[in-house]
Nucleic acid binder design. Sequence first.
DNA 1: ACCTGAACACCGTTCAAGT
DNA 2: ACCTGAACACCGTTCAAGT
Lengths: 253, 253
Amino acid sequence: MSPRILDNNQLLAREQELIDTALQIMETDGTAGLTMDKVVARVPYSKGTIYNHFTSREDLLTGVCNAGMSVLAELFSRALTFNGTTRERLLAVQYAYLLHALLQPTQFMLVISAKTASLSERTSERRQAEHYQLEGRLMGPMLKLVDEAITNRELVLPKQMTKQQIVFTNWAGSFGAIALLINSEGKCSGRQGLAFQSEIFNHANLLLDGMQWHPLSHEMDYYKSVERIAQEIFPEESAQAGNPQYSQRMKAN
Amino acid sequence: MSPRILDNNQLLAREQELIDTALQIMETDGTAGLTMDKVVARVPYSKGTIYNHFTSREDLLTGVCNAGMSVLAELFSRALTFNGTTRERLLAVQYAYLLHALLQPTQFMLVISAKTASLSERTSERRQAEHYQLEGRLMGPMLKLVDEAITNRELVLPKQMTKQQIVFTNWAGSFGAIALLINSEGKCSGRQGLAFQSEIFNHANLLLDGMQWHPLSHEMDYYKSVERIAQEIFPEESAQAGNPQYSQRMKAN
DNA sequence: ACCTGAACACCGTTCAAGT
DNA sequence: ACCTGAACACCGTTCAAGT
């Protein structure tokens, strides 16, 4: 056979295939259970070819992480279309974050792993750059939302805090609560999903009340907001994550 | 040589030695860089002996994690002796948490790893039980502090929230902010330590204002409180973590 | 009763040989 | 120009042999 020259699309498609395969393995075996041998076994390419795409196992992990951030960015975009106040839309974004964590816990957790030296040092520059770009795609819309809240006079920037810090502190709160709960108990039953939700919800409400982002939680029923968000924006995902009552078109199982 | 029968103290001392060695390796090589071979090389015992103490590499990691929780519990106790309001003492506990994270970042991060299935499934029951007990030793004093705040009328439990949830949400906020920042930038310069501090500080203030834990941040200068905490309770540790001005007895280097 | 270290299985990574 | 898979180094774990 004469040597073929692969175009960029083919390469990207194969890379995506490898990332999807890796994610599937991680769903059953966890991050520690992901080995290159297992990937090779599920895929019609050899080890050498995989190493043409990813410089190391860590590079592959960063690839999986980036793929997760990309779908998360999509969820954020959808969340921001929610018809409500700026604070409600922030709540929608945080709900999207929770959904993503419930549906892909190992991928969610990769975000911190990706920040450790042992991982980032062994990640290719290309994928590292992609990672930073994706962080921007996640942060950007949130910063715009803060801006909007400020022009709407729903939020006054607290003393000595920047917009970036507002976004960071909200992210940190959601992240911390989710990270600590996600591995705490047995497998994800519906009950579990709901307990989660209320912790994230409480944390967000306290934090936003603390920064005086109006309407405050005693001025508005945010429980109703979350229900509306789940029903109007994320019915499918909410059902998958253990809130079957939110699904409008469930299939018989 | 006739066979010796080891008493419990010898065994515990050796176990501690192994844990200390593992921690030293992790400080330079990271968690991923910890191998059983490296431990063997630094210690006068053979592999088999190490496996008499720890059922697996993961069991050893949980051992390192537990050791960290134990020193953290000591720091918490000291923090609670701070002479101030209940909210100031909570701040002192969070400051202790930050110090511990800055001084032992890999050990700090182990707390989430220890919650993943891949680690806890391969941890001995004895060490798992020890882990839960240590969680209690960390949570207990915080619950007492919340109780005290309630009897002092400095805090009214928000609607539909338990004391446990108050403690959890504070923990989650500090944890999230620290976890996201700790691996974000270059090595730990003094400057870095201070940036950290202000993020954690902002987050805690917003959260505590949100739950109306008095005195609120506009009623009291909590910057001064943190400085007093650093100077009066943790001068040595603050200096090591990159705030040299807080050390009252620095040695020439 | 306890310790030792050779032996084994597994896994990440490379690269000479192939098309 | 690209792919393959044997080969290598490394690492976690075990266990027969020793004292």
